[in-house]
Design a protein around this nucleic acid. Structure first.
Lengths: 221, 221
DNA sequence: ATATACATTGCGGAAATCCACAAAGACTTG
DNA sequence: CAAGTCTTTGTGGATTTCCGCAATGTATAT
C-alpha cells in the first residue's frame, strides 16, 4: 500500500471523514492541507526531503476566504504538481459530476481516479485507492460515461459558453458580436438561435429564461 | 445537553466527520439519515415511541439517486417536521451562503441556527449546538448579515412569485392568465411587465434572462 | 369634496425572440 | 468525383418582450 499520501480538501468535516476511513488502510503517513497553496508547499518540501508523496487525493473547489491564494482550485493544483512530479498518482474526490470536466481531467491531466462524493463515497474512495495502487484506473459509476466514446448529445464548452453569456444578460445579437470579436465560430445569429433551440429541447425548456433557470439548477453554469 | 439528535445528510464522509465531533459532546443518542424521507420516518417513529428528537441537524441539498423521494430537500424536510413538532430545535448545516435563503429559513421556518460548511465548520457546529441548547440562536459569520434590518428591501412575495413563474418557463401572458385563475392581483399583462421592469432596474439586469440568473445567484428563488 | 400621490391597466410601436425553411459550405463515403 | 449528410448561415414572419405614455382606479390628506 501507499506509504505517503496527501489530502487536499478545505472542509474539515469531510477531512475527518476521509481520515477515519484512510486510517483503516495501512498507509504510512497521511497529511492534509486545507488550501491548495499549502498542498503545493507540502509537496515541494516532501520532494526536497527525497520523500515525495505517492498519492494526492484532492477536491476541486475550495472556498475563498481572507487568505490570498495563488492556486484557487484543485485543477490548478493538479496542473502544478504534474509539472514537477509526473508520476504522482492523483485521485479527484469531488461532488461535481460533469462529464466534460471529468473527461478533461482524465485526458489532459492524466488523473488516475475520479470519485464522486455521495452517499457511499467513502467505500468508493477506498476501492479507488486500492485500484490506483495496483496501477489501475477508477471512475465512479456516475461519471464513467465520460470515457465512453458514445457521447452523442453532449453539451460542450461552446454550449456552456453560450449559456454563460446569456445568463450574463447579453442578447443573442450581442453574443454573436462577442463571438466574432473573439473569433469563436459558429458566430452567426442564426447559428446561435439554432444551438439555443437544441439546448431548449434537450433541457425541455419553454424559452430562454427557462433554459437558464434549468442550467443553473443543474449547476451547469 | 441534548439526549436525542437526528442528522440528515446524504454524504457519508461528512456524516462520519460530524459524527466523530458530536460524539465528543455528551449527547445520548445520535441517529442519522441519508435521505429526507428516512429522516421524516425516523422522526415519526420517535414521536410515536414518545421519545421524540430534540434536535435536527440537516443539510439542504440531497443528491438524487435511484430511490424515489417525496421530500427532496432539507427545506421541505424542515417544513414537514415543523408541522407536527413545532418545538423541535433545528440547525441547518450547508455550504449555501445566500442571504435570502438564510433569511427565509430563519424568518419563516424558524430554524435555530445556520452553520456554513467550511474550513472550520465543525468547531462552529459544536458552538451552535451549545448555543441552541441554551435557547440561543446562531448564525455563521458569513451569513449573519441575513438578519440585519438594513438589508431588507421592497421585494415582496408577489415579486418572488413572479420570478418563480418566470423561471418555470411561463411567458408573461401565461403568468397573467395563471394569476387571474388564482385570483391574485395585479394580474394584467401590463402590470406584470411593469413589476418585472422594476425588478430589472433593482437588480441591474439587462433583460428577463439576466434577472432570473441574478435572482438564482442570490438564492431569491 | 378636492387635490394629490400612487398603483393598475391598456395601447402602440420598436426590439428581440422564436420558428420554419432554404441556400451554401464542409465533411464523409463509396 | 459524386452523392449524401451535417453544419453553418441567411431570410421572413409570427410571437413575445420591452418601453414609454395615457387613462382609469384607489387611497390618503387637507
Amino acid at each position: 500500500m501507499f506509504t505517503k499520501v496527501l489530502i487536499a480538501e478545505d472542509m474539515d468535516d469531510i477531512n475527518t471523514g476521509v481520515l477515519t476511513v484512510l486510517s483503516k488502510l495501512e498507509i504510512g503517513k497521511i497529511d492534509h492541507a486545507q488550501y491548495c497553496d499549502d498542498a503545493d508547499l507540502k509537496a515541494k518540501k516532501a520532494r526536497k526531503d527525497k520523500k515525495p508523496y505517492e498519492l494526492l487525493i484532492t477536491d476541486l473547489s475550495f472556498v475563498k476566504d481572507h487568505r490570498e491564494q495563488k492556486l484557487s482550485s484543485g485543477e490548478e493544483l493538479i496542473v502544478k504538481l504534474r509539472e514537477t512530479q509526473p508520476n504522482l498518482k492523483i485521485i479527484v474526490y469531488s461532488v461535481e459530476d460533469k462529464l466534460q470536466l471529468v473527461r478533461r481531467l482524465v485526458m489532459e491531466h492524466k488523473i488516475d481516479a475520479y470519485v464522486c462524493k455521495g452517499r457511499k463515497s467513502l467505500q468508493e474512495l477506498t476501492n479507488a485507492i486500492k485500484k490506483v495502487f495496483n496501477g489501475e484506473q477508477y471512475l465512479s459509476q456516475k461519471v464513467s460515461a465520460a470515457l465512453s466514446p458514445k457521447n452523442d448529445m453532449e453539451i460542450d464548452d461552446y454550449d456552456i459558453g453560450l449559456l454563460r453569456l446569456l445568463s450574463k444578460g447579453l442578447s443573442q445579437d450581442e453574443i454573436a458580436k462577442d463571438l466574432k470579436k473573439r473569433s469563436i465560430s459558429p458566430n452567426s445569429l442564426s447559428s446561435i438561435e439554432k444551438r439555443l433551440s437544441k439546448l431548449k429541447i434537450y433541457f425541455k425548456a419553454n424559452n430562454a429564461i427557462h433554459l437558464i433557470a434549468n442550467a443553473k439548477d443543474l449547476g451547469l453554469i
